[in-house]
Design a protein around this nucleic acid. Structure first.
Length: 889
DNA sequence: ATAATGACTTGTGTTCAGAGCG
DNA sequence: CGCTCTGAACACAAGTCATTAT
């Protein structure tokens, strides 16, 4: 292990890692066919199904069609459109602007607030889809064959947009056509032009040229040669086919890869890097790497603020030099993505310092009252009481389930014969108040004190923050062991309120490289449960979840690590590959809508829903989990067919977020759904012959590695790119950023990514409205003054009674114009705020949008990438930074 | 074939720090 | 120059999916 030694040194100095290895990127496709999963359980039927409705009704939101108009949350609706076929007109698709309100059985009441925005949404939609469902119907069926025209063939996203345009079908078709072509044939003239222009100007471009080329090649096989800078035609190549082939091949290849690539790399790296390059090195390092480095070091040094800038800068400056490297792909380095080995090996060497535990409980001595009298509690009892007390102002405390579960667990600690017998007789307010005052105290501390405190904490945690993987220092994600507390499940979780006990070292299994020191157990007298040396997994440690002992809590590397980056990239590459199969897949399932085989029919319809609506797969759940569903677990009552061809969806999905949508579908689908429902009760499974493993097994036959969730990634990224292409038109930087956000929002809506409305939302809105009022008043005054000025009269007195300066009419006009602009800006601000109040943009950005789309777009349009990605995202997507501007998903 | 296990991604809500404002 | 307000970072719950066990 000389290697190790080297590695060590590297880390310490944070050297760069250029190694000379050629990079081999491949994807490890571990696609095996089958899976399992329990399909059987339909336990909850009756009750679960029920629940949904119940929940909802309270809110008062009914899911009736009318809502459409009324409610408006733009959210769901977009998704809808997908289905309609081309002619049918996009609009139709939007039939129902489903309200996005979430039913939130959950703690937060998202539901409540939708009123405000609805209004807006309405507007939006209204333009869009006045049309209504009628047209929807067109199930023409030619979908596949012809593919091009039919909207169906397109991913939803495509459709969505079309929906937006109010134009009718013809227009729609056009749009579609355009998009289609784009998809299929990469480099239409449009692109070329784009490429060229931007190229020259954008700073990044140059960099890409050289460096990227080489890099890319490594990663992407095909493009290398072509990819040069902006050459227009190059793009074409990106076509997946080659890739696919490869991937398939790879699977079998696995082992070899490993050895060649990874092994050598690791050994080499270290040695190479050592000191040699010192200052220069950055240039040699690939961009992404550098960024990472910069970030890393910065954060390490505590000067985080600067890190971002640094990174960027580096990037640009480095660009020029990149060329030198070209010939050798040495960059592969670790920070860069390393191929994941086919045989499942994830690392060669791994060092880290284990995990850090929360501090032991410090009793405060504040007593709760039982039947009005103070009660003495042992520290253990008090600790649990405190967990409850601090939640006094949360919605959890209004839930019977929570209180019951809590009391059951607390009673175990109190003992059978404790004076405290009934939760209702307990008054936790003394502890609650004590806690509030502690919080207040903390807040009052001077910034100096806070800073000191922070630094101290940092110092303590520093050693746990990093791991060394194959000689490269990488950030660890969650190195802090979860502290004890009361379980906060989402939605109507049967286990909410249960005590999540303290985790001790002997609950924890450590995974670390062989031959390196095992992290010392931080709690004296105790030891780890187990130490493993498993290089086929990426976790550094795990413990059993105290709430669900058969499940685990893992400690992984941070998102910025190359291990994560590699798999992230593979995820997007897989989604891109789907592009080449999607037509065939769509035509195949379209055929099967009417298959005689009920299993086939269900698979076809389920696939269709997953494709068009971006639904999740929907694994079976146990009774001790919240009752939520995904595609395969939809209940009869979750999908209501409304003739002639509308499906109304209403269910609680992941995290008990409500999904409501109304969609026009092809007649065969509509019929199939009706047939699946017939003879069943509301709580019965809609797809009774299906489960996620059967579905995924089937998908895998259509494309290697294909699973249900790939459709979500595909549709999200496809939509982003498509929307960007459609909406971007030059203009100011701010306009471009706005365009991006609109595109991002479309995706978020399709994926149903919601967030709770912030408490201060309405306050903020009214504050802005006040501002507008003020400005309007000012405006009026200016107008008066202007009129007077034109007549040579002096301005009226201000509100304060002071005389104003005499201004020329021109000057006044200018002021008026400025004020109008201000008002417009605020109005726009209000609008977007309302629109986004329930939409979470971040989730898709982090998980679904291929960062290369964003990076390439930024390069093409000279938008600094920092405008779109924050520091974390820049670090996470380091692997995507050197993409060609001409990149297309 | 199905259930159990295991590992890893996705997702929302809370906390915290600092940007921006009056 | 203090203060709010926002977005980034963090926490951890809840999915997906592959593999192994039965």
């Amino acid at each position: 292990m000389a290697v190790e030694a080297f590695a060590k040194t590297n880390l310490m100095e944070d050297i760069d890692d250029d190694d000379d290895m050629p990079l081999v990127f491949k994807r490890s496709s571990t696609t095996s066919k089958q899976n399992q999963s329990n399909s059987s359980s339909q336990k909850q039927d009756g009750r679960s199904g029920r629940q949904v409705p119940d929940v909802r009704s309270p809110n008062g939101q009914s899911s009736s069609t009318h809502k459409v108009k009324t409610a408006a949350s733009s959210k769901a609706s977009p998704a809808v459109s997908p289905l309609t076929n081309p002619k049918a007109s996009p609009l139709s698709s939007r039939t129902s602007p489903a309200p996005n309100s979430r039913t939130s059985p959950a703690p937060n009441s998202r539901t409540s607030s939708s009123a405000g925005n609805q209004a807006k949404n309405v507007n939006q939609q209204s333009n869009i889809a006045p049309k209504e469902s009628k047209q929807v119907v067109e199930p023409k069926s030619e979908p596949n064959d012809e593919a091009e025209d039919s909207e169906d063939d397109k991913p939803l996203s495509a459709r969505v947009p079309s929906g937006l345009s109010k134009s009718n079908s013809s227009h729609a078709n056009k749009v579609l056509g355009a998009s289609t072509s784009v998809q299929k044939s990469r480099p239409p003239k449009k692109e070329d032009s784009d490429d060229e222009i931007p190229l020259a100007s954008s700073f990044q471009m140059k960099s890409n040229a050289g460096a990227s080329t080489s890099k890319f090649s490594s990663s992407e096989e095909v493009k290398p040669k072509i990819r040069q800078n902006g050459l227009p035609s190059a793009t074409v190549l990106s076509k997946r086919p080659p890739g696919e082939v490869k991937s398939a091949a790879q699977a079998s290849v696995k082992k070899p890869r490993l050895s060649d690539a990874s092994t050598p790399v690791s050994s080499k790296q270290p040695s190479v890097k050592t000191e040699k390059k010192t200052e220069d090195d950055d240039d040699d390092v690939p961009l992404s790497q550098r960024i990472k480095k910069a970030v890393t070091s910065a954060s390490a040094s505590a000067s985080k603020a600067s890190s971002v800038k640094k990174a960027t800068k580096v990037v640009s400056s480095s660009m020029k030099k990149t060329k030198k490297k070209l010939k050798k792909p040495k960059y592969s380095k670790s920070s860069k993505l390393q191929p994941s080995s086919g045989d499942g090996q994830k690392w060669t060497t791994l060092e880290h310092n284990g995990v850090i535990f929360p501090p032991p409980y410090k009793p405060h001595g504040v007593k709760i009252l039982y039947k009005g009298k103070p009660v003495d509690l042992t520290p253990e009892q008090e600790e649990v009481a405190t967990m409850y007390a601090v939640m006094l102002d949360t919605e959890y405390l209004t839930k019977q389930q929570f209180k019951e579960n809590f009391m059951n667990d607390w009673r175990k600690i109190l003992g059978k014969n404790h004076v405290i017998q009934k939760l209702e007789e307990c008054d936790f307010t003394p502890i609650y108040e004590w806690h509030q005052s502690e919080k207040e105290k903390k807040k009052q501390m001077s910034s100096e004190e806070k800073k000191t405190l922070r630094e101290e904490k940092l110092k303590q945690e520093e050693k746990y923050m990093w791991a060394i993987v194959d000689g490269v220092k990488e950030k660890v994600g969650n190195f802090r062991v979860e502290p004890p507390g009361l379980f906060r499940g989402r939605g109507e979780h049967p286990k909410m309120g249960k005590l999540k006990r303290r985790i001790r070292p002997n609950d924890i299994t450590i995974n670390i490289g062989k031959g390196v020191p095992v992290p010392e157990c931080p709690i004296p007298g105790q030891r780890w449960k187990e130490v493993r040396h498993d290089n086929t997994v990426t976790w550094l440690a795990f413990w059993n979840d105290p709430i669900n002992p058969r499940e685990f809590k893992y400690v992984f590397l941070a998102a910025s690590s190359s291990l994560k980056g590699q798999s992230d990239k593979e995820k997007y590459e897989k989604a891109r590959r789907l592009k080449d199969y999607i037509e065939g897949i769509r035509s195949a399932y379209t055929k099967d809508f009417t298959s005689k085989d009920p299993v086939k029919r269900q698979i076809a319809v389920a696939t269709y829903l997953i494709d068009k609506l971006a639904l999740r797969a929907g694994n079976e759940k146990d009774d001790d989990e919240a009752d939520t569903v995904g595609c395969c677990t939809l209940k009869v009552e979750n999908v209501e067919p409304v003739p002639p061809n509308i499906l109304k969806f209403d269910f609680l999905g992941k995290d008990s977020i409500r999904y409501q949508n109304e969609v026009a579908v092809y007649e065969p689908v509509f019929k199939a759904i009706q047939q699946f429902r017939s003879g069943k009760k509301g709580g019965d499974d809609l797809f009774d012959k299906l489960d996620t493993s059967k579905l995924n097994a089937h998908l895998k036959e259509l494309m290697p590695g294909l699973t249900a969730k790939v459709f979500r990634t595909y549709n999200a990224s496809f939509t982003l790119e498509q929307q960007l292409t459609k909406l971007t038109q030059g203009g100011e930087l701010a306009d471009k950023v706005a365009v991006y956000n609109v595109a991002n929002k479309e995706v978020a809506i399709i994926c149903n990514h919601q967030r709770t409305v912030s408490k201060s939302h309405s306050v903020q809105i009214s504050r802005l409205n006040e501002k507008i009022d003020e400005l309007k008043a000012v405006l009026e005054e200016f107008k008066v003054d202007l009129a007077r000025a034109k007549k040579g009269k002096p301005p009226v007195k201000g509100a304060d009674g002071k005389a104003k300066r005499n201004l020329t009419p021109e000057a006044l006009q200018k002021k008026i114009d400025q004020t109008n602009v201000k008002i417009d800006n605020i109005e726009r601000q209000i609008e977007t705020k309302e629109e986004l109040k329930t939409v979470a943009l971040g989730t898709s950005k982090i998980n679904y949008l291929d960062p290369r789309i964003t990076v390439a777009w930024c390069k093409r349009h000279e938008v600094p990438i920092e405008k779109m990605f924050n520091k974390s995202l820049l670090a996470k997507f380091a692997w995507a930074m050197d993409v060609e501007p001409s990149f297309t998903f």
